[in-house]
């Protein structure tokens, strides 16, 4: 019998990359998924699969951590949207030659590790630190530090994920041609109507991408709660870390990770169905 599948030159050339993706990308993910069906506190991949870990999770209080993670991520995204849209608008339309400098200022912190930047905030905000210490010695003011509160966690998250909202938004706004805005204005629309009817819908692709990007990143956040929140709140990512390290319960950690992926995946798909990027771009 002849070979069933005749591979063309293109398919053959793609094999190395395909193998690389399978080993480097798909395999670890599949391993985590498979691990979540293994018996608790084991390290073997060859036991009989069961849903025991999931049952444990649903009987536990893990949902609190899930809610914290999703809630913090949602609030972060909303705060980022409110902060970034005006800034992005300014970068594209108002600041002119200063836009480049501003963009750089927002980019440079990305070159420094997230943890180092968060510890920088600690030094800045801690009691007798840069901010409160200075206020005390110069003005004699003694204020409570906001460190190790929910506000501090949000501050850290907004700070860390700001570029991921800002740059897609900047791109989205710059995609609105100025003649299109002029046309709406010329047809009698007020500045606000031009914004609502033309600029906002046409910059939607950038906004939606910014939302998705920051939400997915923020749900996976862990350092902010640990460092700036002083472990006052335990997000789901922290639970997963505990399961994999301190508790040495890999299958439970894997099950938590799979659940998180499912929740985030479903939310993202729902958002993408609601905001059809192709439609915004006028392709449909």
């Amino acid at each position: 019998m002849r070979r069933l599948v005749q591979l063309g030159q293109g398919e053959k050339s793609a094999i190395p990359l395909l193998l690389f993706l399978l080993i480097g990308f798909a395999a670890p993910l599949l391993a985590v998924i498979w691990f979540s069906f293994m018996p608790a506190r084991t390290f073997s991949l060859f036991a009989a699969p069961s849903l025991a870990n999931y049952a444990t999770i649903f009987e536990s209080t893990s949902y609190i951590s899930f809610l914290w993670s999703l809630g913090l991520a949602a609030v972060t995204v909303i705060l980022l949207a409110l902060i970034c849209y005006p800034v992005a608008y300014g970068i594209v339309r108002v600041f002119g030659k200063w836009a480049m400098l501003l963009t750089l200022l927002f980019t440079i912190p990305l070159f420094v590790s997230e943890n180092i930047r968060l510890y920088g905030w600690i030094l800045f905000l801690i009691k007798n630190g840069v901010l409160l210490g200075s206020l005390k010695s110069i003005f004699g003011l003694e204020l409570e530090s906001i460190l190790f509160t929910r506000t501090a966690i949000l501050l850290g998250m907004v700070y860390v994920y700001l570029p991921f909202m800002l740059f897609p938004m900047t791109l989205g706004i710059s995609m609105v041609p100025s003649e299109t805005r002029d046309a709406a204005f010329d047809l009698g629309a007020s500045r606000w109507q031009v914004f609502r009817e033309i600029e906002l819908p046409l910059s939607m692709p950038g906004i939606v991408i910014g939302f998705l990007l920051t939400f997915v990143l923020a749900v996976g956040a862990i350092a902010e709660a640990k460092v700036m929140g002083g472990q006052r709140i335990i997000p789901i990512t922290h639970d997963i870390e505990i399961a994999f390290t301190y508790a040495q319960n890999w299958p439970l950690g894997a099950a938590l990770a799979v659940l998180l992926m499912l929740v985030v995946g479903v939310l993202v798909l729902l958002a993408l169905r609601r905001f059809d990027l192709d439609r915004f771009l006028g392709r449909r």
Partner: peptide, 20 residues
């Protein structure tokens, strides 16, 4: 008088149609 209050209207080079 700003463009949105003038009784005049423009057809642009790019046409500037609203793609959405």
């Amino acid at each position: 008088l700003p463009a949105n209050r003038r009784p005049t209207c423009m057809v642009f080079q790019s046409l500037a149609l609203f793609p959405h």
